[in-house]
Write a protein that binds this DNA or RNA. Sequence first.
DNA 1: CAAGCCAAGTTCCAAAAAAGAACCCTGAAG
DNA 2: CTTCAGGGTTCTTTTTTGGAACTTGGCTTG
Lengths: 163, 163
Amino acid sequence: MRWEELDQQPCSLARALSVVGDRWTLVILRDCFLGVRRFDDFEARLGITRHILSDRLKKLLDAGVLEKRPYQERPRRDEYRLTVKGRDLYPVILSLVHWGDRYMADDRGPPIRHRHRGCGHRMRGVLVCSECGDDLHPRDVEVEESPAWEGQLMPRKRSQSQD
Amino acid sequence: MRWEELDQQPCSLARALSVVGDRWTLVILRDCFLGVRRFDDFEARLGITRHILSDRLKKLLDAGVLEKRPYQERPRRDEYRLTVKGRDLYPVILSLVHWGDRYMADDRGPPIRHRHRGCGHRMRGVLVCSECGDDLHPRDVEVEESPAWEGQLMPRKRSQSQD
DNA sequence: CAAGCCAAGTTCCAAAAAAGAACCCTGAAG
DNA sequence: CTTCAGGGTTCTTTTTTGGAACTTGGCTTG
């Protein structure tokens, strides 16, 4: 399968990755969440080539994850800002950050800490069930195919141990 | 910056992406969470070349996200399984799936539904504060540099509107 | 008024990674 | 002793990146 076909797969993960699944897009978005908005600032912070940066920003605009807004006229300059669609990627970013904090930190510990303004504490993001509020673990989640894709999604069964 | 240098960046997101940030790794892991464990099954389901699949599985083993376990002797055969480190990527995967469900679904709706065994309801994963349990939104989270990286992480300030 | 400068990109070329297909190895099984 | 299954590796062609230089429009400075 070629990368461009990924957004036609019957899988929301594959489709999401067709937007944010390449090597640089999520680091660009991390900077967006930190308040970076201008081309040169992205370039300076990311150490990414202008070529690739330009291409990725364009794709994020096309995908509706970022939008351009003028911050001055004459000369016209635009900055890149997260849309609502883009802001909704926050759980993805924060989950990745906490995974990195846990498994990839060196002896100096995690480089960034998060504090929740609501309660004032240092915290992590935790994934919970939208209905009952309990923590979610993979084994507690049952997946069902939507009838529209009957038979195309799930792995064929092998006799397999449950651990 | 070259891709291989990403794991030395003082940023947990960059380090996490040095493991799972390429085009195929997260789709491979999605299948792991669905119970796929064998080379040929991955190949058949993913439509990925054997070459790349082999390379990615090897990298996931090196990273400690997957492990090989024998499921028979004579001839010896191994399967790939998630480690605890790998299972801890579940929030990332589920967040991406729900983002895809919301923004990338076609008229047939999301291909897969999730049910929480704990409460029996169809649900989404929601990100909440580990301390107070409230929903997390980017604006409610304040980031602080750890003293060990003073000055290397945050964007330099520009006078900028807050929206 | 020419010479720079800044933000925001493009263009061009060489190097690296991915796609696609064919081939290899090991240990049964017929 | 030929075939098959599982689990890869090799080879060649396309695509993507990396790196650096060039462009464009409008200030600004001497």
